[in-house]
Write a protein that binds this DNA or RNA. Structure first.
Length: 566
RNA sequence: CGGUGAUUAGCGCAGCUUGGUAGCGCAUCUGGUUUGGGACCAGAGGGUCGGGAGUUCGAAUCUCUCAUCACCGACCA
């Protein structure tokens, strides 16, 4: 490609609304432009990278025995009614009507459509297992799109779905896909980790996420230093503290605390360690429950894990906090003065909070706290459960090592779905005994457009992007110095450009009539990994210059040796 | 959905307090000079100041309203 015939679209200035480095560089390097909130046009530099990521994913999916198909983005609502997700999915699901007033959705995922396909096309156990994938645009009406294509509303995703008659068969495919995912991220040159994950609204039992490690990641992931254990913080379990709860040493007393509405204010004003306080969070109960509200109690220095909380039998899912009015109506005090003692509702206590003695908490009377509270003596303990996020230094739930926390960008997610979708959609085949048997499913996603952003988060420097060869928009740049003045430079540059094309190398020939500084800056910004510089200065010595973008290494080589350099 | 802030040339911004026919930098175009790290000189084009309504002799500027965008929070395969 000649840059004079190309849309380079680079920018010198960083747009003010781009926060993370990948977003800034994608705009500056002429990869994307925003059309509207969460919607991006991919420019030539971006499309080239996107296609390369796509191609790696496609090759590895094919190697896993998955077969490519292509399903519509627009999906009829009745399929979503069948699985119940028409009601369960929130406003994230974009719904609209066609000219006949029939309901449709813009597909955020394709379980319904693929199951509809398979229930019609597959009738016999002899056709199984079957693994289908597509690389396709998805739409999710995100509440808050941000960070460019990292969390956009429209995005490109590879999604695969496998169909089986037994959990063992599903497990086998799941393991193959797991290995295939590892190969994908290795080939893409990313530093990544597979971690145990929650299955979320997709449902199912076993699930792993693949995370690219980056400071800007939106997920917290947890590692053990004593084993391979790694999990999303949503999923990572805490274990009950070892040993007996310390015996009470204080009497419970009521204390006036007019200026302490938060734990932070409480420990600042009184002689109290944060580990000796508890927070009381009031959430709504399920409609079936005999109570309207439930109290969740965690230690003052801990954070509630929403996912763990909403898995409790009586807690409404999605988790919903009670409003201040509801709390006042039930307790008679505001949210700043709540505690387990004399609380007129069921209480679920986190393991760590249940292990506290002589602790402080609200008295359920405005501006009053109790100090020196002890479970069983002063208040019944009730149900004890895992309610909190793990923190750095917690013992690993696998039994060996302690936990560390890092940030990650979720770029892949695999699930064992089981029979849920197949059952609600009546997807079954005849088994060897000639009996109808419901299918067991797995599903496997890769965020293709998100990978592009994630790769930049891991591969950049002060000059721009430092692509790994596997996904760079161009592998090679030819940068001539003052070509329009020097016939010799022009001749060599053209010859090398033609040779690169013959060799099948993705090459960008910067034939613009620009000053050298401009060309160098653009080539570095868009991150082309290998650069040939041709100028009279080196031609006088019978050589040309090779530069490596990532290492910064510069060497002079004979013209005929140049293609051996990379 | 709540809080905060923004919207003036392609991009980044000033002007608004104190109303008087709209400016800077970058980018673009033309001519010239220059050419190994985002050059210089001269000139040019480009704006119904987010939309609507109001106050006023007169509104980018004051008031109301709507829209869009961003950040924080809530939310989220």
């Amino acid at each position: 490609m000649r840059s004079s015939k190309y849309l380079l679209a680079t920018q010198k200035e960083t747009p003010s609304d781009a926060e993370v480095v990948s977003h800034q560089l994608m705009l500056r390097a002429g990869m994307i432009r925003k059309l509207a909130s969460g919607l991006y046009t991919w420019l030539p530099n971006g499309v080239r990278v996107l296609h390369k990521v796509e191609q790696v994913v496609r090759e590895e999916m094919n190697a896993c025995g998955s077969i490519e198909i292509h399903m519509p983005t627009v999906q009829p609502s009745d399929l979503w009614q069948e699985t119940g997700r028409w009601d369960k999915f929130g406003p994230e699901l974009l719904r609209f009507q066609d000219r006949h007033s029939r309901d449709f959705v813009l597909g955020p995922t394709h379980e319904e459509v693929v199951t509809e396909l398979v229930r019609k096309e597959v009738n016999s156990y002899k056709q199984l297992p079957l693994n289908l994938y597509q690389i396709q645009t998805k739409f999710r009406d995100e509440v808050r799109p941000r960070f460019g294509v990292m969390r956009s509303r429209e995005f490109l995703m590879k999604d695969a779905y496998s169909f089986h008659l037994s959990p063992e068969c599903l497990q086998k495919t799941y393991d193959e896909m797991y290995a295939g995912y590892c190969r994908i991220f290795e080939r893409l040159g990313l530093e990544y980790r597979p971690v145990l994950a929650d299955t979320g609204s997709i449902g199912g039992s076993v699930s792993h996420e693949f995370h690219v490690l980056a400071e800007s990641g939106e997920d917290a992931i947890v590692f053990s230093d004593g084993s391979d254990y790694a999990a999303n913080i949503e999923k990572a379990e805490t274990i009950a503290p070892a040993g007996e709860r310390p015996a009470p040493s204080q009497e419970m007393q009521e204390v006036a605390t007019p200026n302490a509405k938060t734990i932070a204010e409480l420990i600042e004003q009184f002689e109290l360690k944060i580990e000796q306080t508890v927070k009381t969070l009031i959430v709504k109960a399920t409609e079936e429950s005999e109570h309207q509200l439930i109290a969740l109690i965690i230690r003052g220095d801990h954070e509630l894990n929403d996912i763990k909380a909403e898995k409790l039998a009586d807690v409404a899912s999605p988790l919903e906090f009670a409003s201040e009015e509801e709390i006042r109506a039930a307790v008679g005090a505001g949210p700043g003065s709540l505690g387990p003692v004399n609380l007129p509702m069921p209480v679920v206590v986190d393991y760590a909070a249940a292990h506290c003695s002589d602790f402080g908490a609200g008295a359920n009377v405005d501006d009053k706290h109790f100090f020196g509270i002890n479970w069983e003596r002063d208040v019944a303990l009730g149900q004890v459960a895992d309610l909190r996020n793990v923190v750095e230094g917690d013992p690993s739930p696998c039994g060996s090592g302690t936990l560390a926390i890092k940030r990650g960008i979720e770029v892949g997610h695999i699930f064992q779905l089981g029979e849920a979708y197949a059952e609600s959609m009546n997807a079954a085949v005849l088994n060897e005994q000639g009996k109808n048997q419901t299918l067991t499913m797995g599903c496997y996603g890769v965020g293709v457009s998100r990978i592009v952003a994630a790769a930049i988060e891991q591969n950049n420097d002060k000059y721009g992007i430092t692509w790994p060869d596997s996904i760079a928009p161009f592998k090679l740049a030819i940068v001539p110095m003052n070509m329009h003045k020097s016939h010799r430079v022009q001749e060599v540059a053209n010859k090398l450009y033609e040779e690169a094309k013959e060799r099948g190398i993705d090459v960008l020939f910067d034939d613009r009539k620009e000053r050298p500084g401009v060309m160098f800056a653009d080539i570095e910004l868009i991150g082309i990994p290998h650069v040939i510089v041709i100028g009279d200065r080196s031609l006088d010595k019978g050589v040309i210059e090779y530069k490596n973008r990532r290492s910064g290494e510069k060497i002079e080589v004979a013209i005929e040796d140049i293609f051996n350099q990379f």
